[in-house]
């Protein structure tokens, strides 16, 4: 029988945390989708050999500290303004690979104008959109993407569309814009889903460097703390409740 010591050799390595992701302890709650998406960003940037050319724009929300975890240059945007910040960085330094990393509140509520107009101008940036249907950082309030009937701390009896309007499928809106070349909805709850999501992310980054326009990758995600479930329960709840309303797949790929 082969021992663990005999297996643990560099030539037998099949998976490890990407080098670009540093050892700083992430502030995210256990099981949070952010961590997986961070890893994918780090992996794709690393595999493209773009470590020295990538600029990240972090949002206000749970990912506000994204800049502490991935070893590239970052700029922290005001709430919702990441696409405007990224627009300028990319236009002034076209050789850079520029992405925003935004939650649903940041992207689809306070930053709707910046998001839609950056996409409509066809800025050569990547927009990474974490949709967990809730405001995580502030403690679980209703988001523009909160599902009908879903309970949050500001719709404690469930989202009532008469009172709060309808959950916003912003990616579908963006897919209508001529400036957006690639709009896709992915998830990261299983190993096959993550592999697919990584491919999508890679394509988005490649589009941005090929000058094809704006690419938006939505990650339908979980928020165990906000949803008040375990991470395992959250994944199941997401598959059963989020996926029917936010179906996975490409919304546009030109």
């Amino acid at each position: 029988m082969i021992t663990a010591e005999e297996i643990i050799k560099p030539e037998n390595l099949v998976y490890t945390k990407p080098k670009l992701m540093n050892d700083t302890h992430m502030h995210y709650c256990p099981g949070c989708s952010h961590g997986v998406v961070h890893k994918l960003v780090a992996e794709v940037v690393e595999e493209m050999g773009m470590e020295e050319k990538t600029i990240g724009v972090s949002p206000v929300g749970c990912a506000v500290f994204a800049y502490n975890y991935i070893d590239i240059d970052w700029v922290e945007a005001a709430h919702g303004r990441a696409p405007a910040v990224a627009t300028a960085v990319k236009r002034l330094s076209p050789d850079k690979m520029v992405f925003t990393y935004q939650g649903d509140g940041d992207l689809a509520a306070i930053g709707t104008a910046e998001t839609i107009h950056a996409c409509n101008r066809g800025e050569n940036i990547v927009i990474i959109f974490i949709n967990n249907a809730i405001y995580g950082m502030t403690g679980g309030q209703m988001a523009p993407t909160t599902l009908e009937g879903m309970k949050t701390s500001t719709c404690p009896f469930g989202r009532d569309v008469k009172l709060n309007g309808y959950p916003l499928k912003i990616s579908n809106l963006i897919a209508q814009l001529d400036g957006a070349c690639y709009v896709t909805r992915q998830s990261v709850q299983t190993s096959p889903a993550i592999k697919k999501a990584k491919k999508a992310l890679r394509q988005a980054f490649e589009n941005s460097m090929a000058g094809k326009g704006t690419s938006l990758v939505e990650f339908v995600s979980t928020c165990s703390s906000g949803w008040k479930m375990t991470p395992v329960q959250s994944n199941k709840w997401m598959e059963e409740n989020m996926f029917p309303f936010y179906p996975l797949g490409d919304l546009k790929n030109e």
Binding site: I8, V14, Y15, T16, K17, Y28, G31, G35, V36, S191
Partner: peptide
């Protein structure tokens, strides 16, 4: 159950905190 591991790396891939390193050999 260390003996059961087939080195598929599914654990490493889904780990949000990048805590898991996976090794595999063909016997």
């Amino acid at each position: 159950n260390p003996d059961a591991c087939i080195g598929c790396a599914a654990c490493g891939i889904v780990c949000p905190d990048g805590c898991i390193t996976v090794y595999k050999v063909k016997l």
